[in-house]
Design a protein around this nucleic acid. Structure first.
Length: 424
RNA sequence: GGAGAGUUGCCGGAGCGGUUGAACGGGACGGUCUCGAAAACCGUUGUAUCCUUACGGGUACCCAGGGUUCGAAUCCCUGACUCUCCGCCA
């Protein structure tokens, strides 16, 4: 969330950010409530101060055996007033808080202004589209040829968008997850976390999914818990309500989780095969860094994500997202799009974002810097990567003329583990 | 699911309803001493918010939210979490 003091002093800038992000938020109402709140706070403090003073006088008089009837009578009316103002005050605080949660993060100046994805710019391109001596098939055909997927049965058991990976397909999926995790652990020095897949309302609010995206999440009514749409949520909230030491910073976590998304409102869009799912696997990177270091950390994380695609030898491009395409909580986002030759299009496999102190304000995550000052950290996260579209690109890129699939060499160790030979 | 115990500052740990933002101990930091270090001694050691250009001052916070009271860390209620025992189960 944005600091109320910042909003007070930079109204136009905040308005512009809301506009550029295609959001709606009532700044006028917000400022009015802020004004009322401060007035009430002032009255409350003054009354309390008086009450504290007189209460001590009463104590002294009673101790000395003197009569304190006047003070007692006086204070009972003050107590009543305090009660009323206190109620009004907490009502305004709640209201202000609710409004503040609807203000999006402010995009950084270098983010291109634009309404939708058409205003995104291409940052760079890696590799080239593969050339085939035959007509390349799309991933679903290859998957079906090789018995890698059983989508009809997934639909039967749960509904569309809940895939079943079968046989070598399941093994390939698991290999991707293991490969990416180990890659980040060993080459990029992240620490692994295994986290809960269901989180409470406060946690969802901390990273910014709530209140805006409630409709997009699976919710378990009975316990008021949400299935996570990304590991970002539990991992970023790892330090909620804590004050870290500057010595602990930076913190870099990587976490594999399934992700659950209702995808409300996107029915009929990119539905073929693994393109858009309600449940999918993702390896996520999250960093907690000092404010001065976050811009640099964003570039590093982008490289961390790219390194995976490079290891697989997949052609991709990096997009610099425009204001309208940057998420509610993000200040700046890069998307990684991998080339799927069978479908002849680029598919988003990663989103790498800098959130500044937006999430750490919401989740109350701070650190004490070397001079002893308590400040909000900056958070970043990036997919590294989401598997379904990665699998699409792999299947389509490494398909053979006979309809089979030949995994890139780096994956071989994960696909060829043979316990029988090791006599376990 | 049932029965009990607990939750206080960076940590340990006191705390009768009225100078308790909180004793005492430890840690950390600064200083004295020392060639240096240890020890010893002295001092410092929270966050948020409001008023003020500033100096400074007020208020809130002893798990969370309510209640009783002129006044609550202290009494009452509800909830969360932790621990122990029983039951059930992976």
């Amino acid at each position: 969330m944005i600091d109320i003091k910042f909003i007070r002093n930079n109204v136009e800038q905040v308005r512009e950010a809301i506009r550029n992000k295609n959001e709606k938020a009532d700044i006028v109402a917000l400022l009015a409530i802020d004004e009322t709140r401060r007035k009430l706070q002032f009255e409350f403090d003054n009354l309390k101060s008086r009450q504290n003073n007189v209460s001590q006088t009463i104590a002294r008089k009673k101790k000395a055996g003197e009569d304190a009837a006047t003070e007692l009578k006086d204070m009972s009316t003050v107590a009543e007033e305090i009660k009323q103002i206190s109620a009004a005050l907490s009502a305004s605080n709640t209201e202000l808080e609710a409004l503040l949660l609807t203000i999006p993060n402010i995009p950084q100046p270098e983010v291109p202004v634009g309404r939708d994805e058409s205003a995104n710019t291409v940052e760079r391109i890696w590799g080239k589209p593969p050339v085939f001596t035959f007509e390349p098939k799309d991933h679903l055909e290859i998957a079906n040829n090789n018995h890698y997927l059983d989508l009809p049965r997934g639909a039967k058991i749960s509904g569309s968008g809940f895939p079943i990976y079968t046989g070598q397909g399941a093994r390939l999926e698991r290999a991707l997850i293991s490969f990416m995790l180990e890659f980040h652990l060993q080459k990029h020095d992240y620490e692994e976390l295994m986290v809960p897949l269901m989180v409470n309302r406060k946690t969802m609010t901390g990273t910014g999914q709530l209140p805006k995206l409630e409709e997009d999440m699976y919710h378990v009514n009975e316990d008021d818990l949400f299935l996570i749409p990304t590991a970002e949520v539990p991992v970023t909230n790892f330090y909620a309500d804590e004050v870290l030491s500057y010595k602990d910073i930076p913190k870099c976590f990587v976490s594999y989780t399934p992700c659950f998304r209702r995808e409300a409102g996107s029915y009929g869009k990119d539905t073929k095969g693994l393109q858009r799912l309600h449940q999918f696997n993702k390896v996520e990177m999250v960093r907690f860094v000092e404010p001065e270091k976050s811009a640099e950390a964003l570039e590093e994380m982008l490289c961390n994500a790219e390194a995976i695609l490079q290891a697989f030898g997949l052609h991709y491009r990096v997009l610099n997202l425009c204001t309208g395409d940057t998420s509610f909580a993000s200040q700046r986002t890069y998307d990684l799009e991998v080339w799927a030759p069978g479908s002849q299009k680029y598919l988003e496999v990663s989103s790498v974002s800098n959130f500044g102190e937006f999430q750490t304000r919401r989740a109350n995550i701070r650190y004490k810097d070397s001079s002893g000052k308590v400040r909000h950290l900056h958070t970043l996260n990036g997919s590294g990567l989401a598997t379904p579209r990665l699998m699409i690109a792999l299947l389509e890129t490494y398909q053979q003329a006979d309809g089979s699939f030949k995994a890139p060499d780096v994956l071989k160790p994960w696909l060829e583990i043979n316990l029988k030979e090791r006599q376990l």
